[in-house]
């Protein structure tokens, strides 16, 4: 028995499916541009780590904000916050932008793939996996 054969396609148009993060009019909520460390602008990523700047939420915090602040007393990824709060990723963008603006949380930028991979990072990951 032979397996089915994959046909390489010509680069098919992606008309019906906007690319990630391109913020087409149909998906305005895709653009989560938040102030990163040192004030430069960074997009909120699923694995951006969020840490509360103070242990107690201020009285002005909304219940939603207070819940988030309590969750990230220790660093927690946006994905984990979304899971614990049962909020979609798009809603996290809004909530976190408010908290970042109010300087109630700090965001630690993710490591993203670069044109040239960082070998020492990959080596660290391999060492970590070896210990699993």
């Amino acid at each position: 028995m032979t397996p089915p054969q994959r046909q390489r396609r010509d680069l098919a148009p992606e008309t019906a499916t906007p690319r990630e993060g391109d913020g087409k009019p149909g998906n305005p909520e895709r653009m989560y541009v938040v102030a990163g460390p040192d004030g430069e602008r960074a997009e909120l990523d699923l694995v951006t780590l969020i840490v509360a700047r103070a242990t107690d939420p201020p009285p002005s915090a909304s219940p939603e904000q207070a819940a988030l602040l309590r969750l990230c007393a220790a660093p927690l990824s946006v994905a984990e916050l979304s899971a614990y709060l049962h909020l979609p990723f798009s809603a996290m963008g809004v909530l976190l932008t408010e908290l970042l603006t109010a300087e109630l949380v700090q965001a630690r930028a993710p490591i993203v793939r670069k044109a040239r991979s960082d070998r020492s990072l990959l080596e660290a990951v391999m060492n970590g996996l070896q210990r699993l």
């Binding site: 990630e20 699923l46 990723f89 993203v112 793939r113 991979s117």
Partner: peptide, 8 residues
């Protein structure tokens, strides 16, 4: 957002 673009 960025799921694939940013993945190692």
């Amino acid at each position: 957002n960025g799921l694939f673009e940013g993945a190692l």
